[in-house]
């Protein structure tokens, strides 16, 4: 009887740690959020990896179609040089510079990520990211679509951008 109790305890503790470990493993090998983190840690010279993780053209297309959210919102700090260069990169078809310019922009406006969640459906993965903009009470929410191919996620396009108060 005594020995049974110890075995039950061990199984109980293993279940708790395995559930946490499962969460970590799932995050590492089966999540689009991890892909996003990896993309933001890459440098512009890393051609091959960027192409593996991000469909630059469709991403740029979808962002360009929704760029008015950034341009027309009075609460977002507007940098005309930034917008002009973005438009220029897009017309040139230089999607890689376009993409990295956006990431640098997010860094310069003090946007800090406050929430992100991932919903998976078949081969698609929907990631919602919320950024708090500097000192304001405004958050920008992005909905990004990922496609799973050969075991890795590929950033496809931005589905939605909208602003709301926290």
């Amino acid at each position: 009887m005594q020995r049974n109790n110890y075995i039950i305890t061990l199984v109980f503790s293993l279940c708790i740690s395995m559930s946490i470990i499962y969460y970590i493993l799932d995050f590492r090998y089966n999540s689009a959020i991890y892909t996003l983190m990896k993309i933001s840690s890459l440098s512009e010279q890393n051609n091959q990896e960027i192409n593996q993780l991000c469909n630059l053209e469709s991403f740029a297309d979808s962002l360009n179609a929704m760029f008015w959210v950034f341009e027309n919102n009075p609460l977002i700090k507007r940098d005309s040089a930034f917008i002009v260069s973005m438009r220029q990169y897009y017309s040139e078809g230089n999607f890689k510079s376009y993409f990295f310019q956006l990431y640098n922009y997010i860094k310069t406006i003090d946007a800090s990520m406050i929430y992100q969640i991932e919903k998976r459906k078949n081969r698609l993965s929907y990631v919602y990211q919320s950024y708090k903009l500097g000192y304001s009470n405004i958050k920008v929410v992005l909905k990004l679509i990922f496609l799973r191919e050969k075991g890795t996620y590929l950033l496809q396009y931005i589905d939605k951008i909208y602003c709301s108060t926290i």
Partner: peptide, 11 residues
């Protein structure tokens, strides 16, 4: 007998 309850508490 050391009860499972108290062992769980320790865990």
């Amino acid at each position: 007998l050391v009860k499972v309850k108290s062992l769980f508490m320790g865990v």
